[in-house]
Simulated assay, not measured.
Amino acid sequence: MASSQLKPSYEAEYKRLHASVWPGVLAALARAHITDYSIHHYAPLQLLIATFEYTGDDYALDMQLVAEDPETRRWWAVTDGMQESFVPGAQGSGGDVPWWMVCCLPYSELEEVFRFEGETST
């Protein structure tokens, strides 16, 4: 799962584009063994949440091939400007720094700010 933030002024255009994703972009995803790809929008926070299944054997290589696909790069040139990345230093999709923030990190990589074990002392 990954996330970014949609700029409010682009909400309608972003949804319109994604209602009819360019065929070349879909073909690049299929070649990269991506299935069940979805993007959800949580309007109160303008949050975009993306999920997909990967069925290939070399994720890094497949993602590199997607990033090198000319049609996908044109798509990103349009859609990245409609979003704000949560990743410090991100310059756009397909760059060295990921544009979408991966949301499902192992708990050991996250700072715990609260825990309730279920016991209270009364």
Rank of each mutant, 00 (worst) to 15 (best):
H40A: 15
C103P: 00
G89S: 06
F52K: 04
K7M: 06
C104L: 11
L65Q: 14
P23G: 08
D58H: 09
R73P: 06
A90W: 02
A67K: 01
I49Y: 00
L48K: 00
P88N: 00
L17A: 08
H41Y: 15
W100V: 01
Q5Y: 13
R73M: 09
H33F: 07
A30G: 10
D58K: 03
S4F: 02
S20G: 13
R31D: 15
T120P: 06
E109P: 00
R16C: 10
L29Q: 12
E112T: 15
W99M: 00
R31I: 07
V66L: 06
A67S: 11
D58G: 00
G56I: 02
P44H: 08
T120S: 14
L17T: 07
Y59P: 00
G56L: 03
L6N: 01
A27L: 12
W75Y: 13
G95E: 00
A60F: 03
E53I: 09
R115A: 12
S93M: 06
F86C: 00
G56H: 02
K15D: 11
A19R: 10
W100K: 03
E84H: 13
V97Y: 01
E68M: 07
T72N: 10
Q5A: 12
C104Q: 12
D96W: 02
S20W: 09
L110P: 05
Y10L: 04
W22E: 12
S38G: 11
V66I: 15
S108I: 09
E112Y: 07
P8W: 07
M63T: 04
Q46W: 08
M82N: 02
G81T: 03
E13V: 11
P106C: 03
S3G: 10
E13Q: 15
I34E: 01
L17N: 09
Q64G: 05
G89L: 02
P8R: 09
T35P: 02
A77D: 12
I39D: 03
F116C: 10
V78L: 14
A27F: 08
T79F: 04
A19G: 15
D96Y: 04
M1V: 10
A43T: 15
T55H: 09
G92N: 01
S108F: 09
G92R: 00
E84G: 06
R31A: 14
L6W: 01
E53L: 10
L6Y: 02
E112G: 13
F52H: 10
E112N: 13
A60E: 09
E109I: 05
A43V: 13
A19C: 11
E11M: 13
W76V: 01
R74C: 09
